[in-house]
């Protein structure tokens, strides 16, 4: 079969050669094909490759821009986060300071009040003891006066004397 094909090719080729046109020898078609291709080349260079390259560049630029924006946004985000943490930390320490201050102030106030109260208590104690002393002193003479009768009554009771007689006797003795 292969030999037959080859012989067929040779037959046609030699026929073509005899007919003054070998299909392996270029003819005028060359120039027409060249012209057609040059038109295609011109159109593609001007209307395809140039705009496509522009589009690709533009897209690369957009991608790069987006990446840059993303990075910048991430940086800003991180900075904001750090600032927030910083603020939080300072606020916390400030709050701690305030708390300590309040606590010390409270303690001072409590101490003051306690001291005041202690003073008041001692004042009151002193006053009360003085009152008591004054009262005791004022009561002492009247008690001394009633001491006589009391001691006599006691003695009578011990001696078993009637109070009236005793008192009469007493009165008599006094007389």
């Amino acid at each position: 079969m292969a030999a037959a094909v080859v012989s067929g090719v040779i037959v046609v080729a030699s026929e073509a050669e005899a007919g003054s046109s070998n299909f392996l020898i270029p003819n005028g078609t060359f120039f027409f094909v060249l012209a057609i291709f040059l038109i295609v080349f011109g159109v593609i260079a001007k209307f395809v490759v140039a705009p496509v390259q522009k589009v690709l560049e533009e897209r690369d630029r957009l991608v790069a821009q987006t990446a840059l924006d993303n990075r910048r946004a991430a940086e800003e985000d991180a900075a904001a986060e750090a600032g927030f943490k910083q603020e939080l930390l300072s606020a916390r320490s400030q709050a701690g300071g305030l708390r300590d201050q309040a606590r010390s102030q409270g303690r001072a106030v409590a101490d003051d009040l306690r001291a005041e109260a202690t003073g008041e208590v001692s004042d009151k104690l002193r006053e009360a003891s003085e009152d008591l002393k004054v009262q005791g002193e004022s009561l002492a003479p009247s008690l001394d006066a009633s001491l006589d009768n009391l001691s006599m009554a006691l003695a009578n009771r011990i001696l078993g004397l009637d109070a009236d007689t005793a008192s009469a006797a007493t009165v008599e003795r006094r007389k």
Binding site: V11, V12, A16, S21, F23, N27, G28, T29
Partner: peptide, 19 residues
């Protein structure tokens, strides 16, 4: 097989050239 046309082209003469 010999009826297979190899490299056969329809030709014409344009601008004085066989095409």
């Amino acid at each position: 097989v010999s009826s297979i046309e190899v490299g056969h082209h329809t030709t014409a003469t344009w601008l004085g050239m066989t095409v």
